[in-house]
Design a protein around this nucleic acid. Structure first.
Lengths: 139, 139
DNA sequence: GTAAAGGTAACTATGATAGTTACAACTAAT
DNA sequence: ATTAGTTGTAACTATCATAGTTACCTTTAC
């Protein structure tokens, strides 16, 4: 079980926008770099646009970062594309028995730990900027 | 996208074995507490047994912890049930273009960050023991 | 030998993902 | 104003993991 490539593709798209400011960066062009279908790209750029990370307009070719790459973290991207729902990285079974002490209390015991673990992961993402990723890509 | 309930159910099973040492703890009994089918339980106890966390024997009712609950962390359980493959919490798209600088280098730029993030999450799990979980369940 | 239990294969239903086609809506250029 | 190019999005498909279920073999205890 893993987090959708949607997240990795979103990072790819934004890195491309940061680095290749000359090209038109249409969904078709981006799709070529990512190696997928333009609709997949448009689905993701639509989410990135709604989250305010990029500026896209219907009918007009290309997309642009809405703010500088230093001010976009991987966590921003992760949240934008809904990579993992809030506190839902770990699923918990739905119907433990209310007649058993363990069944009654297990969710309460593990959910806080799951939340801590998820937040630890997200904190790492929050400390890495798009600029840092882009800086590792030679022009 | 989230991590299978298999992990939460495994914790539930082990907590039950720790707390309810009197009952026979057959797969059917455990299934009642978890609220699922006995085969689902047997699938998981089989994995826990192969990982050396519990002792189970074909034909003989019940399962027992193979070592004390203080010495079993949630990370041990997570690894036992293969909740997430090694360094595979985050998926990366397969076919970026080798003709594009971003396509060529994006995987190398993000995979180390993904690994750090996953490890941060796993570290939290490694710091919580089964005994701590069990202690939160009133008898 | 028999009853009770675990181990496991096989099948189904469900849900998320990713790819694809199709088309409406929009913009810019002429 | 028309047209070409582009985005936005719905709809459909294929694939995969999960979880539930039935069935049956094997093993153990008595």
């Amino acid at each position: 079980m893993n987090i959708s490539t949607r997240f990795a593709v979103a990072i790819h798209i934004l890195a491309l926008l940061e680095i290749d400011k000359e090209s038109k960066n249409t969904s078709e062009w981006i799709a070529g770099s990512v190696g997928t279908n333009p609709v997949v790209i448009r689905r993701i750029t639509s989410m990135l646009g709604k989250a305010g990370l990029i500026k896209v307009r219907p009918g007009v070719a290309g997309a642009k970062l809405a703010r500088s790459a230093e001010k976009i973290t991987l966590l921003d991207i992760y949240l934008a594309v809904d990579a993992v729902g809030q506190d839902s990285l770990f699923a918990v079974h739905d119907h433990p028995s209310p007649d058993c002490p363990v069944g009654r209390n297990i969710a309460g015991a593990i959910i806080p730990v799951f939340a801590l673990a998820q937040h630890a992961m997200e904190d790492v993402l929050g400390q890495v900027t798009l600029a840092q990723i882009a800086s590792q890509i030679p022009v």
